[in-house]
Amino acid sequence: MDSTINGKETPDEEKLLNPQFKKLRTALQKYIDLKNENHPWDSIALERPKLVLGDSGGAISAIKDRLHYLGDLNDAPSDDKYDKDTKDAVKSFQSRYGLSPDGVVGPNFMKALNIPLDTLIRTITINLERVRWIPSELPKEYIWVNIPDYKLHAYEQGKEVFNMRVIVGSAAHGTTIFSGNIKYIVFAPYWNVPTSIVKNEILPGIKNNPNYIKNHNMEIYGKDGKYPLVRQLPGPDNALGRVKFLFPNSYNIYLHDTPNHDLFTSRNRGLSHGCVRLSEPEKMADWLLRNDTTHYPTQVIDSLMNKNTKEKWVTLDKTVPVYLVYFTTWVDSDCKINFRKDIYGHDAKIAEKLFK
């Protein structure tokens, strides 16, 4: 039997819904109401490369009107000046869309501002469908990685205690969506090179340079069928960096450090082979071991990460849930709706089923 009444959830079903579902449903209604107002939504053209504080004329009036319409600019526009209030509104919009919040109106900003209302409504609807599968109540302590947002959030007693930038799988090597439990921290880890990388990268490298293995601080420690087993030794250039966090799973996905932290400044951080690289791995280690400061005070963790040359496994006294999720829109703690790019094309697949 259908559990909805006139398309709405019954009281019993409401109890099973995650609070994010209710927030998104409210946002959806807001955008439907905006569409029903038949407010002009023509594409706005920028007449110069960019707009900054102090500029006037051009498309500023239309931009201010739309920012007001979407709730980023409080007061209705009365002139065509790019003033401080307008800059703050632009920064608010940029933050909601995952753009650099620099207050500069340029091509990326305009592309986001010109997304049709119908497209936004569809995106919200798709994510409403996704959030149905999130439990109504999450654990008091957990880690949340939203892949399209390239960000990790840590929660304690149900409240966010920190967040950090992450690098996720590229479009060709997408990070799998699933949940698990962090059980181990491995300091100064070996990197056991996957067979696919041995086949496609290591063996061609050896063919071109006999010293390839030595030059990359690697060793061959066995054989698996016709391919050698290769691992990279612990050290500053190890592909996993100085530490990794394991939540046993069949996908061989985990969280880890990286020797190349410059990549975290990039806006689009879909760059890995599937695992999740952390911008602040030491903060993660400190947090996971915060209740065992007798054995692992901050200085010991720092030493294990930066001075240890031998791999060391630490088993957590209590596993910590981790959720790898895929939301291209959500309502944040400030009740603002956020949108991100559908980096893996998952939205398009769901849309084919929802909007036939």
Rank of each mutant, 00 (worst) to 15 (best):
184 Y>Q: 13
350 I>Y: 01
181 N>W: 00
109 F>D: 09
235 G>L: 02
176 T>D: 00
71 G>N: 07
307 K>F: 02
74 N>M: 07
50 K>C: 06
98 G>L: 06
90 V>F: 00
199 K>R: 08
217 N>V: 07
304 L>M: 13
334 D>N: 14
185 I>N: 02
352 E>P: 11
265 T>C: 15
66 R>A: 04
225 G>W: 00
138 L>Q: 12
14 E>Y: 04
227 Y>E: 11
190 Y>N: 15
74 N>E: 07
265 T>H: 03
231 R>C: 14
39 H>I: 10
128 L>T: 11
327 F>G: 08
314 V>Q: 09
189 P>C: 04
27 A>Y: 04
84 K>M: 02
195 T>V: 08
104 V>E: 04
311 E>Y: 05
157 Q>H: 07
12 D>K: 12
261 H>T: 10
89 A>Y: 00
249 N>H: 04
46 L>G: 13
217 N>C: 11
33 D>I: 13
69 Y>F: 06
338 N>K: 09
217 N>Q: 13
89 A>F: 00
236 P>I: 10
284 M>L: 09
266 S>E: 15
20 Q>Y: 01
16 L>S: 11
347 D>Q: 15
73 L>Y: 00
270 G>H: 08
23 K>P: 09
120 L>Y: 02
290 R>P: 10
275 C>T: 04
82 Y>R: 15
44 I>A: 04
320 V>Q: 03
336 K>P: 10
97 Y>E: 15
138 L>D: 06
128 L>E: 12
83 D>V: 00
116 P>R: 08
178 F>R: 13
128 L>R: 08
254 Y>P: 10
116 P>L: 10
295 H>G: 12
54 G>I: 04
241 G>Y: 00
240 L>N: 15
97 Y>S: 14
257 D>L: 02
113 L>W: 00
160 E>F: 00
43 S>D: 10
278 L>T: 15
6 N>V: 11
51 L>R: 11
47 E>L: 12
101 P>K: 12
306 N>E: 09
57 G>Y: 01
240 L>C: 14
43 S>W: 01
343 I>T: 06
166 V>L: 01
181 N>C: 04
50 K>F: 01
339 F>V: 11
133 W>P: 15
309 T>I: 14
110 M>H: 03
349 K>Y: 03
168 V>M: 03
33 D>Y: 10
172 A>D: 08
44 I>E: 05
157 Q>V: 13
284 M>P: 03
47 E>Y: 12
205 G>I: 12
267 R>I: 14
211 N>P: 08
168 V>C: 09
193 V>S: 01
26 T>C: 09
316 L>T: 04
325 V>W: 00
203 L>T: 15
318 K>R: 09
10 T>K: 08
328 T>H: 02
92 S>D: 05
272 S>E: 03
20 Q>D: 13
347 D>K: 14
280 E>D: 06
